[in-house]
Design a protein around this nucleic acid. Sequence first.
DNA 1: TGAACATGTAGGTAAGTACCTACGTATTTG
DNA 2: CAAATACGTAGGTACTTACCTACATGTTCA
Lengths: 110, 110
Amino acid sequence: MEKRRDVFMAIADPTRREIINMLAHKSLNLNAIADHFDTSRPTISQHVKFLQDCGLITINKQGRERYCEAKFDNLKEVSQWVEQFKQFWTERFNSLDNYLEKIQKNKSDK
Amino acid sequence: MEKRRDVFMAIADPTRREIINMLAHKSLNLNAIADHFDTSRPTISQHVKFLQDCGLITINKQGRERYCEAKFDNLKEVSQWVEQFKQFWTERFNSLDNYLEKIQKNKSDK
DNA sequence: TGAACATGTAGGTAAGTACCTACGTATTTG
DNA sequence: CAAATACGTAGGTACTTACCTACATGTTCA
């Protein structure tokens, strides 16, 4: 098995999603991030490292502090994957007509 | 640790993403899905169960076959989370002016 | 300079994941 | 009815994750 550290894995964890949300507002150093969670600082440090590995944040060293800044570009990949299905959850496609139409299509496909 | 089986976890796995893509075109039974992968049928069966647990697919029993149909509604959650950051990766926000603006903002925040 | 601070990392644990083979159970079909 | 088909699940393995408590390193400040 191969170790996957991609953006989809990154946002699979709720703690990491929350970190991204926090950094969307402003840059924070590691302790500031860790203070928002019940988990230990080293654990948060590892989550931050994960996010950095995926290119979702960059770290700027300033003295003894490391300021984390979110880089959202790689979220585009997730966005694009999800958006291709947007048509399926819009009202238009949930109408009865389209539902029946889909059923018919499946029948003829088999 | 708690076992999380939410939509974010579901789409974290590339095989599961591909299954969803396949089902976007039409309903398929389990063997039809498994045939598209190198992995064994039981493994695919477990991925399908995962997706079912997350409400991303429903299974219609027809004789000895189980037809899997994608249900995209729960992807809305992912879509909404990602889209809130869309502003950050648009051209407008990548311009030099806004970059400098952001730097200034961070400085004054600290 | 020495204490306090910010952080990384080593090392360990419990649990989850992704995968497999083997086998059991319906259902269809020759 | 017996063989073939479609599928679920049990049980095992190797690896990853998320978490922790030390501990080490670099930086600031009294």
